[in-house]
Amino acid sequence: MWIYEKKLQYPVKIKNPNPALANVIVSQLGGPDGELGAATRYLNQRFSMPKGKVMGILTDIGSEELAHMEMIGAILYQLTRNIDPEDIVGTPFAGYFVDHTTGVYPSSAAGVPFDNKYTGVKGDALADLNEDLAAEQKARVTYDNILRMVDDPDVRDPIKFLREREIVHYQRFGDALRLTMDELDCKNIYAFNPSFDK
């Protein structure tokens, strides 16, 4: 179960709305390497992990991803507040606006709705943890790309925080993979599924 805490993990306080930025940052909510995919990936992978330590790492990182979804939601919400629809005609945000107004809808920067294909659960501890290592790197690259396009320090600050979290999560998933490999049956030299072939 979970308990909600009525605060953001890191503050989001954006003075100047800018719907064009929301249109690219939305990818880190509902895009292929976004926070929604990360949360569902880790929280669902937990069930087939062979060791308590790795169940714990996935639980704690998966829960933190829920807090990151909320931060991205807050960024999108603040970037699109008080906008005049006439000002967005012909801008990249117009398509989003006509379908979702200024609601927070998980989709990619290219407008593709969130797809559960991003969740990546194979039911094999080694396959899943390698997926997670790649996922953290891909999310970090996406944040790098967002930072290449954004000048506003109010937006850069929380995005930089989220980027740093990808790097730390990558470290912990490295630990999780090592812990899993260390405890494999010594006869399982090719590291076949330790979650199923016991």
């Binding site: 605060k7 953001l8 993990q9 890191y10 503050p11 330590k53 714990g56 790492i57 704690d60 990182i61 933190e64 730390v168 912990r172 630990d175 999780a176 812990l179």
Partner: peptide, 23 residues
């Protein structure tokens, strides 16, 4: 006070993740 709370909570998030791997 909220920023202080967020800062101490952040240290806990980091320490919990670290302890998961290095108990």
């Amino acid at each position: 006070l909220l920023d202080e709370l967020r800062a101490v909570d952040f240290t806990l998030v980091e320490t919990v993740l670290y302890l998961d791997a290095y108990e």
